[in-house]
Amino acid sequence: MVFRYELEGGNFSKAGHASSEIKKTLKQLSVDPRIIKRIVVALYEAEVNVVAHAWKGEVLAEVEANQITLTLRDEGPGIPDIPLAMQEGYSTASPAVRQMGFGAGMGLPNMKKNVDELEIESRVGVGTNVRMVTRFSGE
């Protein structure tokens, strides 16, 4: 099964929609609730990043029998230094994003912590691709 959701830069009310839908789907498939939680926490942080830092983007969720692959593609400023962005506490978030309760530089570390595989590709001035894979059987 493949699901697709759209994201708009700056539109915080849409952030979390994909996570919420994926959560319901995985529950129906009787995936371990602890694993569901890790998946949706990572996806939610990733959605917030698109809304907070990019112009527009989409979430693709590919659900297979034993794993989920989440791909977030965005058109945006890109990430010039990915290892730096991965550091806890590093953030370029605007005051508006901070008012939403994010922007502490914990999003990418939270994503890394909660998925089995995380890959980030980015081109400055073009956009960012984030790919996260989690197996349902636990590590």
Binding site: F12, S13, A15, G16, S19, S20, K23, K37, V40, V41, Y44, E45, V48, M100, G101, F102, M106, N110, K113
Partner: peptide
Amino acid sequence: LRLDTGDVLLITGLCNLQTIRTAEM
């Protein structure tokens, strides 16, 4: 989002839709 305990009360001054979304996840 980092909490891994169940049955927690969240006390917060952040009052927007993101608070509820976060609690959901």
